[in-house]
């Protein structure tokens, strides 16, 4: 597994509250190759976000190994992580361009290059001409595009996305999925995409990691053998349906949707 870019094995995370401890993540083991787009799917509150935050270095962990980067592909945690959350989290007093530049400012990257790159990224996410707008003047989808451009500004090797399209309407969401695939192809980043949408997970990922509830455990790690570039009509293909049904079963739902998984406690 020397070629893997991310390596997690037996990762455990315990949350302590005032009078109890509970196991949030248990025995999570997976590898991600450089340049892969891997979906992580699971019921809400099952600890998906916790795993992302462990990877981002925001959360500590109690056991196991987390390694990001390899000899051939070194990883600097302060410069090589881009994050996108469910909320765009734009600074409302900054225009779009200035919002995109925020990470570059914090890292002290050269102004001129960053500015050029910001313009390039805004074009890539389809926001050319919106540089001088304030976030509140943009639609939800456009705000999330801005957040994606911001996550890419410092040219990180790893993009962590936590249900980034979860707050968007269904149509915009499908459009953003296609956009993300295009951006992924163009930028060649390693992307971990957390979602609770099974369709979305299958549609985007070259692999889907399935987590089950409390504590988050790996239920499966399946390769999605659908060719890229993916198109929306693939979602009606038999093969796509097979993957989706497989995942639904894992998450405790029969194909007829009779048995809904109960929600868990951790985010």
């Amino acid at each position: 597994m020397s070629e893997s870019f991310i390596h997690l094995s037996d990762v455990r995370k315990i949350f302590k509250t005032r009078n109890e401890e509970f196991l949030a993540v248990s025995e999570v083991t997976f590898d991600v190759k450089a340049g892969e787009l891997v979906s992580i799917v699971g019921p809400s509150g099952c600890g998906k976000t916790t795993i992302l935050k462990i990877l981002a270095g925001i959360h500590s962990y109690e056991g196991g190994t987390v390694r990001i980067g390899s000899e051939a592909n070194p990883f600097d945690p302060s410069k090589d992580i881009g994050m996108v959350f469910q909320q765009p989290l734009l600074l409302k007093w900054r225009k779009v361009l200035q919002n995109v530049l925020l990470p570059a400012e914090i890292l002290g990257l050269p102004r001129k290059e960053s500015l050029d790159r910001a313009h390039y990224l805004l074009k890539m996410v389809g926001l050319q001409g919106f540089e001088d707008k304030y976030p509140h003047e943009l639609s939800g989808g456009m705000q999330q595009r801005t957040a994606i451009a911001r996550a890419l500004i410092h040219d990180p090797k790893l993009i962590l996305m936590d249900e980034p399209f979860g707050a968007l309407d269904a149509l915009t969401r499908e459009k953003m999925n296609l956009e993300l695939l295009r951006i992924w192809k163009e930028s060649q980043k390693t992307i971990l995409f957390v979602t609770h949408g099974i369709q979305e997970a299958v549609f985007l990922g070259s692999r889907v990691i399935v987590l089950t509830c409390g504590p988050a455990r790996m239920a499966d790690n399946i390769a999605i053998d659908l060719p890229y570039p993916r198109t929306l009509d693939m979602m009606t293909h038999e093969e796509f349906g097979k993957y989706a049904r497989h995942l639904y079963k894992h998450l405790g739902m029969d194909a007829d949707g009779s048995d809904i998984v109960e929600e868990c406690r951790i985010d």
């Binding site: 935050k53 981002a56 925001i58 302060s78 410069k79 600074l91 990470p103 914090i106 410092h154």
Partner: peptide, 20 residues
């Protein structure tokens, strides 16, 4: 979440204060 985002970039206390 925004604070988490800038902390992954190792933003200093001062940067968090002045920029956010």
């Amino acid at each position: 979440d925004l604070l988490d985002l800038v902390r992954t970039l190792r933003a200093s206390r001062w940067q968090i204060f002045t920029k956010i």
